[in-house]
Amino acid sequence: MGIELELHSGRPARGRSSPNTLLRGSYQHGEALARALSTLDRHGSGKLGWVDPYGDTLFNEQEARVALQEVTALAQRCADERQKNALLDLAELLEACAATPGSHLWFMGD
């Protein structure tokens, strides 16, 4: 199980990556990211708990802004170095998404 990330300048086509909108991808932290996010309550009030480790989840710029606060707190509590690196990479993508009007961050689960 792993989660790959892609930042797109617009909403990507459903179920496939679009090279026309792809700004940046993160593919090296999949398993560590999935493990780090699995500690969150899927039914809680946070945005990151919504990420489906087996399917696709899409955040717009407003959702990314909210999730950025969550991932920062999660990374500070994380003791596993691989998971912490995955969360820091996610934080960079969330920050870029929040700062780019019309962008979307795509979480691609296995």
Rank of each mutant, 00 (worst) to 15 (best):
L94V: 09
T72R: 15
N60P: 07
E31G: 03
Q69C: 00
G25S: 15
G2K: 14
R42F: 06
R82A: 07
P12F: 08
Q62C: 06
P101G: 09
F59I: 11
E61Q: 14
E81I: 03
E95F: 07
G102N: 03
E4P: 04
L93S: 04
E95W: 08
A96W: 05
C97V: 00
A91I: 12
A67V: 10
E81Q: 08
N20D: 01
F59L: 15
Q62G: 07
T72N: 12
R65P: 05
V51F: 13
L40K: 11
Q83L: 02
H29V: 02
L94Y: 02
L7T: 08
A73V: 14
V71T: 09
S45H: 04
L48Q: 12
R42N: 06
Q28S: 12
E70V: 09
T57Y: 06
G109M: 13
H29Y: 11
R65H: 04
P53Y: 12
G55H: 13
A67K: 07
G102I: 01
E61C: 12
L88K: 10
G30I: 04
A79R: 12
R82G: 02
G102H: 01
M108C: 13
R24I: 13
S103L: 04
W106Y: 09
D89K: 15
M108S: 08
N60M: 10
K47D: 05
L23P: 01
R42Q: 09
S18E: 05
R82H: 06
A79M: 11
E4Y: 14
A91W: 07
